[in-house]
Design a protein around this nucleic acid. Structure first.
Length: 200
DNA sequence: TCTAGGATCGGCT
DNA sequence: GCCGATCCTAGAT
């Protein structure tokens, strides 16, 4: 399944965050688990623009143990817990000292569907297996343990890959971000990007 | 130390 | 559509 794909290099992430977010759509997020490889094609992401973004954990230059990963190297995973229950997977962008990241909001399972279903529950419809940040982490068994993992290195167990598929501009919807009403006007910034069509 | 609140989800009405 | 679960994080004291 992943034989004809290539892992995105660090350079991919060392660009403006909104640009990286748009380019992540249609890419493949793969995770090696004891039971086998699990992969989803990304169809929804949100950009968080660091110190100047009131919705971002690092707004105003906040640097805490939790956000330390965001301050580091681009291409690493930033994983945190929300509502005491759900994990959220982010990808660090730009570079060291620039704490920006992209929240992976959802994807469509394309490999290891049975494994995902086993983790998510047998009764869950295939479209709903990974169509939210918390669900996606559950589907791929991503937890705080994975915070800081290098997504450019296969040995980390989690990678983002491309199979050459490109997403046309008219297939990308730009929407306000979810659940950040507290951020004032920034809540309306069109940094949530979603595929409006279903790719293969 | 204490406390308020959260980048969500799923069950129930 | 509403609401509770659940616990970590960050800022205040």
């Amino acid at each position: 399944m992943l034989a004809e794909t290539t892992v995105l290099s660090r350079g991919f992430y060392q660009r403006p965050t909104a640009e990286v977010a748009r380019d992540l759509l249609g890419k493949i997020l793969a995770r090696r688990t004891p039971g086998g490889v699990v992969a989803v094609r990304l169809d929804e992401v949100e950009a968080y623009l660091g110190a100047d973004d009131p919705a971002c954990h690092t707004f105003g230059g906040r640097r805490t143990p939790r956000t330390e990963t965001m301050w580091g190297e681009a291409g690493r995973a930033y994983v945190y817990l929300v509502y005491g229950i759900h994990h959220c997977l982010n990808v660090v962008t730009v570079g060291e000292g620039v704490p920006e990241a992209i929240l992976i909001r959802g994807g469509r399972p394309i490999a290891g569907v049975d494994l995902i279903r086993r983790r998510r529950g047998a009764g869950v419809g295939s479209a709903a297996l990974a169509d939210g940040p918390g669900k996606l982490c559950q589907a791929l068994a991503v937890t705080r343990q994975d915070d800081g993992v290098d997504l450019c290195e296969s040995k980390g167990g989690i990678t983002i890959r491309t199979d050459g598929l490109t997403v046309p501009e008219d297939a990308v919807q730009r929407l306000p971000r979810v659940g950040v009403d507290y951020a004032g006007e920034a809540a309306d910034w069109p940094l949530r990007m979603r595929l409006s069509v279903r790719l293969r």
